[in-house]
Design a protein around this nucleic acid. Structure first.
Lengths: 222, 222
DNA sequence: CCAAAAGTGTTTGCTCTACACCCATGG
DNA sequence: CCATGGGTGTAGAGCAAACACTTTTGG
């Protein structure tokens, strides 16, 4: 009546690095799939919620506090044979972190590395499937919610923002239309600061906290 | 390292009945929450996939074969204290079934009944939360996918379809605009049959199988 | 012929898209 | 003064919303 089933959480951690959409993977140092790359994850403790388990894994791998970044449940994968050790279902989460952070390997990982989502290795378990699903969901959400801002630091220019969208969506966007849309959506405000570099300095913006819930009835970027 | 966690699936089964959006609930005949209404569900067997478990529960409660109707994973609920008996996480699914079917009570249920989503009792566990989430998702999906057809029988009139949308969305729609949209989306075809009743007979339509994947880039019903 | 429900078009405003030049700064 | 990236507006097309009458059948 109550079969022995283990429960893990796995967390797909996306960031923008090197003009690329990257994901944090760890190299497994124990069987099964020793030496293969995998999504970070681990067992759910008896007294912690699933979300807390995901945030704990995120912190262990990146040092990022889960409540400071976007984190959401993705899907639960539970095919009987997905783990050769026995019945293990995994609740997959995905997180968006802003900066290219230093990473540290967890207990069960020999090393951790950011990898481009466009050049993924063959991974342990069903992790390629999980990652494909996460990527699909990320692109999808980008089109009708303001979640993309979570990939950027607190202050950013409109060009930064546009570049972020272009990297994730894998297509180029019209500058004037992009800016008009973002402004109309009223999800950002000027910080007052500017950033100097070669060329005209860029006004810096921040994401408006009160706009998080403001997911539009119409998609922002059709 | 591998805490004792039980895994269940719960399934929110929606249908249209009596001009109302209804959900199938069962009355618990054992503690905890004896006598309370609950969403049908049960333990996941050691060798079955989560989806199969959900389809099995659906069949046990309604006699409907899971592969004949729309069924999808909703969310996984895993707060440590959600079940007083111990740590139980539940993978919630939702299903859309076409007809007001006869229902039969499963092992752990004294009776099963269709209940209006607009007059829900206080339920066992966190089932009110699950149901609210399912309803939100249903309305949301209705707006940008063709999933609403799954609530109707094979043959239906355009008035039937419009009525279905109105019931679920809780608002009235313009007849001409509704029909034009549906026709443009090319998701239905005439069966050739008509249905007679008081008034002019209605042409009957069926949902086009090849249109299932055809979720629009633009929402169908903004 | 009357009641009841099915079916059908047009106009108007808005939103999306495509597109090219000037501006501010540092070197 | 030149190179570099930041910043701005408009015209045309396609889409969505509002709106009322005619058609077909059964009784």
């Amino acid at each position: 009546m109550r079969p022995e089933i283990s429960v893990t959480v796995d967390i797909v951690i996306f960031t923008l690095r090197e003009g690329d959409l990257q994901v944090l993977l760890v190299k497994r140092k124990n069987p099964p799939f020793e030496g293969r790359w995998a999504i970070p994850g681990g067992y759910v403790e008896a007294d912690e919620s699933l979300e807390n388990a995901a945030m704990r894994e995120l912190f262990e791998e990146t040092g990022v506090q889960g409540d400071a970044v976007h984190i959401e449940q993705l899907y639960t994968f539970g095919e009987p044979k997905r783990d050769p050790r026995g019945r293990v279902i995994t609740v997959a989460y995905f997180a968006l972190v802003p900066a290219p952070l230093a990473v540290q390997a967890g207990d069960d990982a020999a090393e951790a590395q950011w990898k481009s989502v466009y050049h993924l290795p063959v991974m342990a378990f069903d992790h390629n499937q999980i990652l494909n699903y996460a990527l699909k969901r990320l692109r999808y959400k980008l089109e009708y919610s303001a979640v993309g801002f979570q990939l950027l630091p607190n202050e950013f220019s409109l060009s930064d923002l546009q570049q972020a969208y272009e990297i994730v969506l894998g297509e180029t966007l019209d500058k004037r239309n992009f800016r008009r849309r973002i402004q109309q959506a009223k999800v950002i405000e000027e910080t007052g600061a500017v950033r100097a570099h070669e060329g005209r300095p860029a006004k810096l913006y921040r994401f408006r906290d009160d706009a998080v819930a403001e997911v539009k009835a119409r998609r922002l970027f059709p």
